[in-house]
Amino acid sequence: MKILQVYRSAPSEETKTLVEILNRDRDADSFDLNVDAPDYDQLVEKIFAADQTVCWW
């Protein structure tokens, strides 16, 4: 199971706890949208490489 965690803003402590549980024993990747110029091409590549994407607030 390959899981991708995407962040629209800096993750809260709660979000970090949930991500830690969701990522446990899985092939986990992440992507930060909370930057001036996100590399959307890279994000799409990562989404299509993952089995599941979670995009946090």
Binding site: R8, L33, Y40, L43, V44, E45, I47, F48
Partner: peptide
Amino acid sequence: KLAIFVTSPQHMRHVVGIAEAAKKA
């Protein structure tokens, strides 16, 4: 096919950026 489910009114640049990148790919 990539589903984009939009529930936040704050991120049009991401919606457009991801949709365009998907098309390009």
